[in-house]
């Protein structure tokens, strides 16, 4: 399967990458399955109970970089209670679909958002 234009755009020019000085929370997630060592550090700022901004740092394959970028755009404006429900499939949709070998990437990016949203709700 060839990658979609959305996937390639997010991979080549990832949005919102970097630290976020004004973050209300920072969380780390890494892939816990066999083999893969992809890691994400996610920063988030909350405005009025909604995700105001998400940034991240990532060590990962093209899929995980693209998924982080898509997730960071998807997250903005989401109420925290919705952000804790985000699934890999939601991120995959933003990327115009991903092949099976990149399923771990969208799952990990979604997990990063859920993890930080959960922390912010506490």
């Amino acid at each position: 399967m060839l990658y979609s234009p959305q996937y390639m755009r997010h991979f080549q020019t990832p949005a919102n990458i970097g630290d976020l000085e004004e973050a209300d929370a920072v969380e780390d997630v890494h892939y816990t399955g066999q083999g893969c060592f992809d890691r994400i550090r996610i920063f988030a700022k909350v405005d009025d109970g909604k995700i105001g901004k998400v940034t991240y740092r990532v060590r990962g394959c093209s899929g995980t970089i693209a998924a982080c970028s898509a997730m960071s755009e998807l997250a903005v404006g989401l109420p925290l209670e919705q952000a804790v429900q985000i699934q890999g499939e939601d991120v995959a949709t933003e990327l115009g679909g991903v092949p099976d070998r990149k399923r771990h990437s969208v799952d990990l990016a979604a997990e990063a958002l859920r993890t930080i949203a959960l922390k912010l709700t506490k």
Binding site: Q12, Q34, G35, C61, R101, H104
Partner: peptide
Amino acid sequence: SMRGVAVSSGSACSSKNLTP
């Protein structure tokens, strides 16, 4: 690849089952 250089990788993320 996007810069016109074709190589291969020992990365598990190049394979479907993520094994290194």
